[in-house]
């Protein structure tokens, strides 16, 4: 009969000092791995330019900035209109294809109906003291949100770099957006 400890003798087990050294080593490695930039990041891709769809990216961007996030919003296709100084003040809303609006599609498709629907929405925004798109953009810029306007779609839409709000970054493309998304803690496509 053996008196050895099951699983090997006590001599084979690492000493306390060895274990302590190993813990130190692992803690150093962990510190190195998690070192550096611990700023939280959010990356939003804004692709829509209707009045209702312009709100979510701007509300989330400004709120994330208030949380201390570094935020970039990459605007492409119709999303460019949100950054367009003139067009952002005249974003439209349509009832066509939107069964939640109180207008039947057959009526919503009539000429001039988008203007009516948009006016209804604008009145609601005003009555509720909801911030305007322009206010949200100015606020977001003040808080350090980076708005990027996709160069390929600027050219496609026939826009000019001067059409956008001061502080908007132009001359960027998908690779820039992808890099931001890869580094971000939160990525959203709106």
């Amino acid at each position: 009969m053996s008196t050895d400890t099951p699983g090997g003798s006590a001599d084979d087990a690492p000493s306390r000092a060895e274990l302590a050294a190993r813990v130190d080593e692992l803690e150093d490695a962990l510190a190195e791995a998690t070192d550096g930039d611990d700023t939280k990041k959010m990356s939003i891709i804004a692709t829509k330019g209707t009045l209702d769809m312009a709100y979510p990216p701007l509300i989330l961007a400004s709120t994330a900035a208030a949380f201390g996030y570094e935020v970039t919003v990459f605007h492409t296709f119709w999303g460019l209109d949100i950054l367009h100084e003139e067009r952002s003040k005249n974003l439209k809303l349509s009832s066509v294809g939107n069964p939640n609006m109180p207008v039947p599609n057959a009526v919503a498709a009539l000429p001039g109906m988008d203007r009516v629907t948009t006016m209804m929405m604008e009145r609601k925004i005003d009555d509720n003291d909801t911030a305007t798109i322009e206010e949200l953009i100015e606020t977001s810029l003040d808080m350090g949100v980076e708005f990027q306007a996709c160069q390929m779609t600027i050219d496609l839409m026939g826009y000019d770099e001067d059409n956008f709000y001061d502080g908007v970054t132009t001359g960027v493309g998908a690779a820039t957006a992808l890099q931001d998304m890869a580094e971000a803690d939160i990525q959203l496509l709106v």
Binding site: I59, S62, T63, A65, D129, L136, T139, D142
Partner: peptide
């Protein structure tokens, strides 16, 4: 007062 989401949080932060 009067301001709605996200302004209360955003203005508090500023």
């Amino acid at each position: 007062t009067g301001a709605s989401c996200p302004m209360p949080v955003v203005k508090t932060k500023s």
